[in-house]
């Protein structure tokens, strides 16, 4: 019986694939935007004031999904932290904490780190003007911190500060979204702030502020992930000294 069901399913799948073959030969390249794309490009300059249409979509048209994305990232960071605390051997500690990365990385990394942070902040702040935004910019900032960890300074990671920053950024995102209730539309994540002058740094209403929150959140979460992965249990701030 199971074999028969499998055969039927397989046969149906093959038939479906065969039915797709003619489409390969008379496929045409679309020459115009579909209705949704054209409408968003038409609408985004006045509704969002953002020069980068992708950012307008990510933060404004589907802002709730972005809030969900940030939550997914938070849950995965939580999962990594829980899993990493289960490592009982000192593999990661011997790989990272007891090694200073060598002379070249020590000095070269220290030279480059501020510039990497600067580029990260730039990308976060210009999310509504040029490609980029909170997610890639936050990753860049976390990368700069990872260089510090590679040079053996993970023990000095301020975990308490990172978790406060992360929570505050999440609350800030929701608070900026709640500003939408002040407007005439009375809905969450509506852009009620003044749009400013098109193509300037302080434009597009709440979009740069929300992206700043996303940037802080992503940077602190990823920093926590890499520092938790590279710290051995019992190594963090001495409060779990009693556990072997």
């Amino acid at each position: 019986m199971r074999k028969l069901t499998g055969l039927l399913l397989m046969g149906g799948f093959v038939l479906y694939l065969v039915s797709l073959v003619p489409g390969l030969f008379n496929a045409t390249t679309p020459t115009a935007l579909d209705s949704v794309g054209a409408a968003i490009i038409e609408d985004s300059r006045t509704t969002s004031g953002s020069a980068n249409v992708v950012t307008a979509i990510v933060v404004q048209y589907r802002g709730l999904d972005t809030l969900g994305e940030v939550t997914v990232l938070f849950v995965s960071a939580l999962g990594v932290a829980i899993l990493a605390s289960g490592f009982r051997d000192d593999v990661f500690r011997s790989m990272f904490a007891d090694d200073d990365g060598g002379f070249i990385l020590q000095y070269g990394g220290r030279l480059l780190m501020p510039f990497i942070v600067l580029v990260g902040v730039y990308i976060v702040a210009h999310g509504h003007l040029s490609p980029g935004g909170g997610f890639p910019g936050g990753v860049l900032i976390a990368t700069a911190v990872f260089i510090l960890i590679l040079t053996g300074q993970s023990a000095r990671m301020p975990h308490r500060l990172l978790s406060i920053l992360e929570g505050a950024a999440g609350l800030g995102f929701i608070g900026l979204g709640a500003l939408g209730f002040l407007g005439s539309e009375l809905s969450f994540l509506t852009n009620t702030l003044p749009k400013g002058e098109y193509l300037t740094l302080l434009s597009a209403g709440f979009i740069p502020f929300i992206y700043a929150m996303v940037g802080i959140k992503v940077a602190s979460e990823l920093t926590t992930v890499v520092s938790v992965l590279t710290e051995a249990p019992g190594h963090e701030s001495g409060k779990e000294e009693g556990r072997s």
Binding site: D99, G101, G102, I104, L105, G108, G109, L111, L112, F115, L150
Partner: peptide
């Protein structure tokens, strides 16, 4: 300028960790 600084640092670090 960034490539001139970052590429040697990263490659020496990769080589060092591979050797270690």
């Amino acid at each position: 300028v960034f490539i001139a600084l970052a590429n040697p640092i990263s490659s020496s670090t990769i080589a060092r960790s591979a050797y270690k």
